[in-house]
Simulated scan of single mutants.
Amino acid sequence: MKEDSNWIVVAEKKIRQELDASKKELKLIQDVIDERGTNSTTSKAPGIRFKDQMFCMRACQEYSGSRVHMLEERIRQIHVWYSNERMGREIPDRVPDEWFKVDIEWRQWLSEQTTLKANARNSQSVECMEVRFWGPLIPLLDIYTG
């Protein structure tokens, strides 16, 4: 492997860490959804707060599930670059800018979904900037502590 392609090793390691974290987030979200669903069947009709929480959890589930698939696809792309490099073909000299843009857009989408419900109930617990940085962790903590 050429030294100038060392970025690819670092990128794969980082993506694998992100993939592991996203899989754990997805499992946690599913556990919360299952727990909330079980609790709602044993109580009376669920209120608006419960519905808002479930909306947020579904958005987090969509985000984390899509992120898992996206990161798996990025790892496949890195393996193609490894193969191309071994065959003497050109490979990019850094992570594609598109990857960063997609990450930002997905976090923005999640932030909009959680902020929409937070604003609907006049809650300040889920802040837009926190969701953009931390992803689904903030809505999860909000539901657990709220």
Results as ranks from 00 to 15, higher is better:
Asn6Lys: 07
Gln61Asp: 09
Glu35Met: 10
Ala45Thr: 10
Asn6Ile: 05
Glu98Ile: 13
Leu26Phe: 15
Ser123Leu: 01
Leu28Cys: 12
Trp109Ser: 06
Pro136Gln: 09
Pro92Leu: 04
Met54Ala: 04
Thr42Arg: 14
Gln124Leu: 09
Arg89Tyr: 12
Trp7Val: 00
Val10Gly: 01
Met57Arg: 06
Gly135Asp: 01
Val9Cys: 10
Lys23Asn: 07
Leu140Glu: 08
Glu35Ser: 13
Ala21Cys: 01
Arg36Gln: 10
Lys44Trp: 01
Asn6Ala: 11
Ser43Leu: 10
Asn6Pro: 00
Gln17Thr: 10
Gln17Ile: 08
Arg94His: 13
Glu12Met: 11
Asn6Met: 06
Pro96His: 05
Val68Asp: 05
Arg132Ala: 05
Phe133Ile: 15
Ser64Asp: 01
Gln124Val: 03
Ala120Val: 01
Ile91Trp: 01
Arg132Ser: 05
Arg89Leu: 14
Trp7Glu: 02
Ile29Glu: 00
Gln124Ser: 07
Ser64Thr: 04
Lys23Ala: 04
Thr115Val: 03
Glu62Thr: 06
Asp52Arg: 11
Ala118Glu: 12
Val32Asn: 05
Val131Gln: 02
Ala118Gly: 02
Gly47His: 08
Gln124Gly: 15
Arg16Phe: 05
Val9Tyr: 15
Val95Glu: 15
Ile78Arg: 02
Trp109Ile: 01
Ala118Ile: 00
Lys24Arg: 12
Met57Ala: 12
Met129Trp: 08
Arg89Gln: 12
Ile138Cys: 03
Lys51Gln: 10
Gly47Val: 07
Leu137Arg: 09
Asp97Ser: 13
Ala45Asp: 06
Val95Arg: 10
Ser66Gly: 15
Tyr144Trp: 09
Arg36Thr: 03
Lys27Ala: 08
Ile48Phe: 12
Ala45Val: 11
Leu71Ala: 02
Pro136Ser: 14
Ser125Trp: 05
Gln61Tyr: 09
Asp103Ile: 03
Ser43Asn: 09
Val10Trp: 06
Pro139Trp: 09
Leu141Thr: 03
Ser125Gln: 09
Val9Gln: 12
Gln30Arg: 14
Arg49Ser: 07
Glu72Gly: 06
Ile75Phe: 06
Asn39Ser: 05
Ile48Gln: 10
Glu90Gly: 01
Leu71Asp: 04
Phe100Met: 04
